[in-house]
Design a protein around this nucleic acid. Sequence first.
DNA 1: TTGTAGGCGTTATCAA
DNA 2: TTGATAACGCCTACAA
Lengths: 339, 339
Amino acid sequence: MPITIRDVAKRLNLSITTVSRALDGYSDVSDATREKVIQTAEEMGYVPNRIARQLRKHKSETIGYILPTSTPRFNDPFFNTFLAGLGNEATLSNYDLLVSTANPAEENEQQLYKRWVRGRRVDGFILNRMQLHDWRVQYLAIENFPFVTLERTLDEIEYDSVEVNGQAGMTELISHLVEMGHRRIAYISASANLSLEASRFAGYQAGLAATGLEFDAGLVVEGDLTRNGGYQAAQRLLDLTSPPTAIACVNDLTAIGAMKAAHERGQVVGKDLAIAGFDGIEEAEGTHPPLTTLSQPIYEIACQLVKLLLIRLESPEIPPQRIRISPELLVRQSTNTGK
Amino acid sequence: MPITIRDVAKRLNLSITTVSRALDGYSDVSDATREKVIQTAEEMGYVPNRIARQLRKHKSETIGYILPTSTPRFNDPFFNTFLAGLGNEATLSNYDLLVSTANPAEENEQQLYKRWVRGRRVDGFILNRMQLHDWRVQYLAIENFPFVTLERTLDEIEYDSVEVNGQAGMTELISHLVEMGHRRIAYISASANLSLEASRFAGYQAGLAATGLEFDAGLVVEGDLTRNGGYQAAQRLLDLTSPPTAIACVNDLTAIGAMKAAHERGQVVGKDLAIAGFDGIEEAEGTHPPLTTLSQPIYEIACQLVKLLLIRLESPEIPPQRIRISPELLVRQSTNTGK
DNA sequence: TTGTAGGCGTTATCAA
DNA sequence: TTGATAACGCCTACAA
């Protein structure tokens, strides 16, 4: 049986009130008492029962995050770093992180969110992989339930978010490719209803426009953010009668898949074909050749999201914040020779 | 304000007792009443407050898992798949998964575990990355707190676990390398106090012995399970006056780092130098050349661990189970040519 | 500065 | 078959 506040109070011949307040740092407890209480609690190994406190305070001191395990093999290293950031930052503020997994396509995703909201299992949510119209945003807004997002939706709703300027990044990348002499620049996309896809694709188009190149829908093939998706999409591009000389990919995993397709055809990436990604995952440093990518500080972004959410929980009244971050173009060998 | 059981009871002119029992499927409620209750609860959008129930039942219906974020850049894809397995399997049984992060070396890891135990925040733990003498096992055993592990420790304590036979796997790999004509086979290890290291290293030694090769301590270099660790360790091996012709690595990430070192020296992996890993992560399929590895079903292992833990929670009395799994040797091009 | 008492939303005991 | 009531462990007005 764990030690309760009662045990501590009894041992000291104090009321549980005093013990509770001494431990919570209230000012109306004498220093002598406080010291005794803290020391005894420590000695007895007392740790407040979080659940009881939660019930009393109507707060779970817990943040919810549901991993979008869309593919059977869920392997995007993005989420490693992301989770590490969420976990560390939450722990720092003595918050817990409740994690679950759901396929965004399936109904059980909705059930999960609703269960945590209605059962007051968490105080707020971290959302990412936003869709342009995302039911989660609408639902949580209606329920008046705190949340923060990475990337934004098109909904006319105010909420806290961190945004990575995928558009500017992609535009910069296209310029770089054009500078390297490329004229036929393809793009491997993600599902069109994803926010990150919309902005990165917009950047691709803007980049073409800015450099006077014409947009060719035939050079855009949809992937699914995985290696395999990138591999297959790249095959289709390389099968074209007039294939591209450069491929910009919506993320690093896609680019890595595309590199594989190129290799299989005996093409030398960085020479015969330029390939670039987006994310800056570690794996991209070690590919052959190393992958040019738009690097975003995933860990820091995760920390920022937690901070934003905690602020929101503390002060529900303050206006929502939007934090903007620009990705950094890391030019590596996969694009450093022209055509 | 969320709807409580009281609201439902009031609406139906029933006592909260009856409502509670109707919803929990007790048999002493008339079918008519139960039907009414369930329907009304549904209509009103009632979801039991999990926290209140937890307090009352002394159960959190939550599983705890603390990610070992030992390196600043925490990127091992192993944990993606592992987490997905834990999350999905837990959700299936209506359990939640509480996640945090801690560096095994730091003191804050102990605090975290203790806080969750003492605060009864979780019902049990999933442990992995076991050390040969692991304070977690000892602590939880003393506290009589449920847990299951992936890999085992040397402690004389009975507990549920899933074990991957790293020794047999590594022995098989060494045989394979010898068959391919290798005689100087190096090994890049992990920290010696890790259980997985002990068994895999034992397999390496057993493999040498079985094939009549002499063990040479100079051919063993310690890595840290990361790409970079593997990279540096491989450099040391390749700097030897009489370098190895094959390198067995404690995991895939290490092997991928080692490949990079080989590439940088202009060596062709699979021809000049054989390299193999352990884990079977997806990335290992796409390396150049594809990496020979000992594949383990990470997702299924995670599911098994959750199942074991839930059984333990349901029936504390039954004797601990040990589930044994053998890794599968996937021979790919990184080792398929001899010397 | 300290103590008393009530209640958070549930489930469990016992009586009706 | 149903209902009143007492916890679970903690926090917090309010009283002393």
